[in-house]
Design a protein around this nucleic acid. Structure first.
Length: 639
DNA sequence: ATTAGGG
DNA sequence: CCCTAAT
């Protein structure tokens, strides 16, 4: 205990840095000292390490963000996996039963990276213990081969009251030979607060209320896989939408993930290693960031990744809108756009797009020149013919349009949701706003393609399928403000390609649009429908999608850094982001860097979701503190 | 695999 | 976020 005191840094919230994981400067010092006195170093290492442990143990008391104890977990979520042989689909079915039915509403999709999962038999009943903080669920299952399988149930919703889960009945679960599938049933006794009542059990709205269970095998997978991991996906409607109402407030998006991992520790980006979600071209990305300033702050955070760009192109959007004053409205839509519009059952010539003018009778006249389908990703063998390419693209487009379309109207990047508002009210009729008017074609929802899993198997292609498939992932174009962002309980979304902001879209957005998006973007330009595949390398080196840190994440980061210092990112990661698979220690370090920068600049210069000043202050303090420690560590550390 | 920094 | 050098 004496030791402990000595090793404290005065600032109560900071923890003595364990030597084993010394920072670079630490190491420098160490080596230096080593020359001077090796024995002393050893003693120091030992003492510091012990002290560090003591402190860590103390910290991990209940109140901290450590794992919740069982007692703290009231509601129970049960997940059982049973064997089910039948289809060759290697699909894990998620069968909501019990109370969880309310959580798993109409859409459950499970992906299994087929051919990868080779689970022997589960030996033990396993508990999924909520990590509390991230509200994700981890579970470790050991198969007969003694490999560890990490099953993670992660929800990106705000389900703070789900704390524990059990995995049971795992006997003989075998997923092998791509022939068997497991059945995962989920039970829960949790209840969620009721919300307002404009939730509809309609097909579309429910789409967002889905649960995804994904089983992934991270075991040095696909070492020989030329193709990205193949995945089979299936989604099915839950028996009922009873309980949908209960979801309204409690959940945002219900993405759950069951991820079996055969490795002890998380491997950052394992999932991405093969094929990372495409990202904007760097320049494009930053350019965009800057342009974000043009959007209302509240809006900004709604755009999470490139797929959420405020750009109307996100859906099938209009281009080339022109005004034609003095003329009567005429449709100049291109052939394709006309087709698209027609498919939606809507008037082919939507009054719309930029370029309107007030006619004598106060009519707003618009003309849509064309629509384009952005971000449609297509994978096709080099040997394929142009003809097949065309067909493939056609299929992809058709598939997307298959569900019918809706038209979304954007004004200055903001979606107009109130169908009852008049053009006058919305300002569309204002001449000066015409430029900001945009339209988008969105899946109507009812037949919208089920969300596909992207993270682990960015390409849903079946390895044995010669036919190129397309992948699309409906993504909300824009979202409203998250009803609430509970500090300290941010939820992770592991959907790299669909970083759907957890809390968004609960209410108003249930009917929100889902862009006709397609893949997270395997190509740089949205316009590049079929990316030319230069080298296989180019694909693997795709940039990850941008996933801005939420305030709660920042909070967690700050707290961890205050405690651990600025040179132990790995520990910070383990401590505060252990369940955030998409945040690597490098990310955290980078974030800290930007946080420090952010804290130093004027509030006016800051962009993105505003970080509470209080947090920024802490950042500065902690940064200064640890910098000081780094400067003159000996005086504090040594006896 | 981590850390630190530049880009 | 990415890329790398240095550990």
């Amino acid at each position: 205990m004496v030791l402990q005191k000595r090793l404290y840094y005065g600032f109560d919230g900071y923890q003595v840095p364990p030597i084993p994981r010394a920072t670079r400067s630490d190491r420098r010092r160490c080596s230096f000292r080593k020359k001077v006195d090796d024995n002393q170093m050893c003693a120091f290492d030992l003492l510091a390490t012990v002290a560090g442990k003591l402190l860590l143990e103390e910290e991990s008391s209940p109140s901290s963000s450590g794992r919740l104890t069982e007692k703290e977990l009231s509601p129970t979520l049960q997940v059982s996996i049973k064997k089910e042989q039948q289809d060759e689909d290697k699909i894990l079915k998620v069968e909501p039963c019990g109370g969880l039915e309310s959580m798993i509403t109409s859409d459950c999709s499970v992906n299994v990276a087929k051919s990868k999962i080779q689970v022997g038999s589960f030996e033990n009943k396993v508990e999924l213990v909520s990590s509390g903080y991230q509200e994700s669920f981890d579970c470790t299952v050991v198969d007969k081969f003694k490999k560890q399988m990490n099953i993670e149930l992660q929800n990106t919703g705000n389900i703070s009251n789900i704390a524990k889960a059990d995995i049971c009945s795992l006997d003989d679960l075998t997923l092998r030979d791509r022939k068997q599938s497991a059945l995962v049933s989920v039970e829960s006794s949790m209840t969620l607060p009721l919300g307002t009542d404009h939730f509809s059990c309609g097909s579309f709205p429910a789409i967002r209320e889905d649960v995804k269970l994904v089983i992934r095998d991270d075991d040095e997978n696909s070492s020989g896989c030329t193709h990205p991991s193949s995945t089979t996906t299936k989604s099915f409607r839950a028996p009922s939408c009873v309980g949908n109402r209960r979801l309204r407030n409690g959940f945002a998006s219900k993405y759950w993930k069951v991820t079996p991992k055969l490795k002890r520790e998380e491997k950052h980006f394992n999932a991405d290693s093969e094929v990372k979600p495409v990202y904007h071209h760097r320049k494009f990305c930053y350019k965009y960031q800057r342009s974000q300033r043009d959007y209302p702050i509240k809006k900004r955070k709604l755009y999470y990744d490139h797929s959420s760009l405020p750009n109307p192109d996100r859906g099938i959007s209009c281009k080339g809108i022109t005004s034609f004053p003095g003329k009567k409205f005429s449709c100049d839509a291109s052939a394709s756009s006309a087709t698209m519009c027609g498919a939606s059952g809507k008037p082919v010539c939507l009054p719309g797009q930029y370029g309107t003018f007030q006619s004598e009778d106060s009519h707003v006249k618009l003309r849509i020149k064309s629509f384009k389908v952005p971000e449609l990703f297509i994978e096709i063998p080099e040997s394929a013919t142009v003809g097949s390419l065309k067909r493939t693209v056609m299929e992809a487009v058709t598939k997307i349009l298959g569900g019918g379309l809706r038209v979304g109207v954007l004004l200055q990047g903001k979606k107009l949701r109130d169908d009852n508002e008049t053009l006058l009210q919305t300002g569309i009729s204002d001449d000066n706003k015409l430029d900001a008017l945009g339209f988008s074609l969105e899946p109507s929802g009812s037949l919208a393609p089920p969300p596909l899993r992207h993270e682990d198997s960015p390409f849903p292609f079946t390895s044995d399928s010669p036919q190129p498939l397309t992948r699309y992932s409906p993504t909300p174009i824009a979202v409203l403000d998250p009803p609430s962002l509970n500090l300290g309980s941010f939820v992770e979304s592991d959907h790299d390609s669909a970083p759907s902001p957890p809390d968004m879209s609960i209410d108003k957005n249930l009917t929100d649009s889902r862009a006709l998006v397609v893949v997270p973007a395997m190509n740089v330009g949205a316009s590049a429908v079929v990316p030319a595949r230069k080298s296989k390398r180019s694909e693997a080196a795709q940039r990850r999608i941008r996933r801005p840190f939420s305030v709660s994440e920042v909070e967690a980061l700050v707290q961890a850094v205050e405690k651990l210092g600025t040179g132990r990112w790995r520990d910070v990661k383990l401590r505060a982001f252990d369940n955030a698979k998409h945040r690597t220690y490098v990310d955290l370090k980078d974030k800290w860097k930007t946080l420090v920068h952010t804290a130093r600049i004027s509030p006016q210069q800051r962009r993105g979701e505003p970080v509470p000043q209080e947090l920024l202050d802490r950042v500065l303090n902690a940064h200064a503190h640890w910098a000081k420690q780094q400067a003159k560590p000996e005086t504090c550390r040594f006896l």
